[in-house]
Design a protein around this nucleic acid. Structure first.
Length: 425
RNA sequence: GGAGUAGUACUCAAGUUGGCCGAAGAGGUGCCCCUGCUAAGGGUAUAGGGCGGGAAACUGUCGCGAGGGUUCGAAUCCCUCCUACUCCGCCA
């Protein structure tokens, strides 16, 4: 949520900056106009209220003394209605302002390239894609040949875009989760959570999924609950409506959760394999940062997600998203893209964003700063990393000509000593 | 899911015949004093926050779980909802 006071001060600058996303945000001029009207009404109604409060107090005193109060009571008789009329007008304006701001995305960082995803900037390349002596297969063929992921039966029991992991496939997925969580918690200082996988609408609003993106998520019929599309939602909202005392920034949280997404807008895309599922596993990293240091926190967060890939020795690149590719809440996003030999391309495996105070304002998360002043925190989130996509990248990068897959060294302890996945006899 | 009880400031807690309650008291915390240190004692201060006005000092308004309503006036009366606890039912 953008700050209405900031809009008031300089709406044109903000509109110009927002328009770099590729939409027209000229309607914000109306929002400022509504806010002006609102403030005039507030002053008017508060005068009424003061008069009513003063007179009511007087009535109380007079009654105690046994004086006659009919005259003064007649005087204030219609104040209630007058106040209500004005309050209703104010509420109407506030709703219009709120609704408009609730649908307005965050302002992109000035330094970002303008344009769609073709304008994303590569910040970094890491690792050397392996030279294959045979034609590398896509992960879904490897997985099906090894019988470690079953797509067909998953669609029988659930529908399209579901998968069932089996045997060493299930174990590899679990090993990845444990490996990531151990590194984030034991070495990088994250506190591990197992949050609810269902959250209410207010929480979904806090991280920006609602009101605009309800069709991307699963709603639980007959309740106010939604299945989380990412652990960012329960983690970022953890301190919702709080003023954090003695905050030691950055506050780092991590969680493994399944994620549920309708993928409504991506019919026909990535239909084969594990890349785009309605349910997938993810280890998420969330940070609360001091407003003055959130971009340092973003660098830290991105690097800590990258470390997952480096230790697995998976080649990747870091892409800074252009303004048009940016998510709703984000001011600046670094995507990690892992090399997928089976697709002969890099695919997104993590997305690390600085949302500044945009989510904190929505979720009302504040802290008391050095001077005792209450301020909104900055929130960041990133995948550390998407487990299914990481699983796929391992199959593709570590495949052997005979169809087996070598287990990356760092995962062997988590695999109970298994060094290679081979076809079961 | 049923029945009952409760939700007041950092914490505990008084306040329900509506007005002297934006809220007693205690603890905690800050500052001051006292006794050589400590323990103990005395005094004093302690809604925070949202939304407005103001250059500022300061000031208005809203805040007693949330939202509505009754009234000149609501912590107090009425309605709806949420949460916690206890009992019952069901259950990993």
């Amino acid at each position: 949520m953008l700050d209405i006071k900031m809009l008031r001060d300089d709406v044109e600058t903000i509109i110009t900056a927002l328009n770099r996303r590729g939409d027209d945000f000229g309607y914000l001029r109306d929002v400022v106009k509504w806010d002006d009207e609102r403030r005039v009404l507030v002053q008017k109604v508060e005068e009424f209220k003061k008069e009513r409060n003063d007179k009511s107090k007087l009535i109380g005193e007079m009654k105690r003394k046994g004086e006659d109060t009919t005259a003064i009571m007649n005087e204030v008789a219609d104040f209630g209605d007058k106040i209500k009329t004005e309050d209703d007008k104010i509420a109407e304006l506030e709703k219009k302002i709120f609704d408009a701001l609730a649908m307005t995305p965050n302002v992109p960082r000035e330094t970002l390239a303008e344009g769609d995803e073709d304008h994303n900037v590569c910040l970094k390349m890491w690792g050397e894609p392996r030279k294959f002596t045979f034609k590398p297969k896509p992960h879904y063929e490897i997985a099906e040949d090894l019988d470690i992921v079953d797509f067909e039966r998953a669609s029988k029991i659930s529908g399209s875009r579901f998968a069932t992991y089996k045997g060493l496939g299930a174990k590899l997925e679990r090993a990845l989760i444990a490996y990531m969580l151990d590194m984030h918690t034991e070495e990088q200082g994250y506190l591990e959570f197992i949050p609810p996988f269902m959250v209410n609408s207010k929480t979904m609003f806090g991280t920006g999924q609602l009101p605009k993106f309800s069709e991307d998520m699963y709603h639980v019929d007959g309740t106010d609950n939604w299945l989380i599309p990412t652990a960012e939602v329960p983690l970022t909202n953890y301190n919702q409506d709080e003023i954090i005392q003695n905050a030691q920034f950055p506050i780092k949280m991590t969680a493994y959760t399944p994620c549920f997404r309708q993928e409504a807008g991506s019919a026909g895309r990535d239909t084969r394999g594990l890349i785009r599922q309605h349910q997938f596993n993810k280890v998420e990293l969330v940070m609360y940062a001091h407003p003055e240091h959130s971009y340092e926190a973003l660098d830290m967060l991105t690097d800590e997600a990258e470390e997952v890939l480096r230790r697995l020795n998976l080649p990747y690149r870091v892409m800074q998203l252009a303004t048009g590719d940016l998510g709703f809440c984000s001011a600046n996003t670094n995507d990690l893209e892992v090399w997928m030999p089976g697709f002969d391309t890099y695919r997104e495996i993590s997305s690390c964003s600085n949302c500044l105070d945009f989510q904190a304002r929505r979720a009302n998360i504040r802290f008391r700063d050095e001077n005792g002043k209450v301020e909104f925190i900055h929130t960041l989130n990133g995948s550390g990393v998407a487990v299914g996509r990481c699983f796929s990248a391992i199959l593709e990068n570590y495949q052997n000509e005979d169809g087996s897959v070598t287990i990356p060294e760092i995962l062997v302890p988590y695999m109970g000593g298994v060094t290679k996945i081979e076809k079961r006899k």
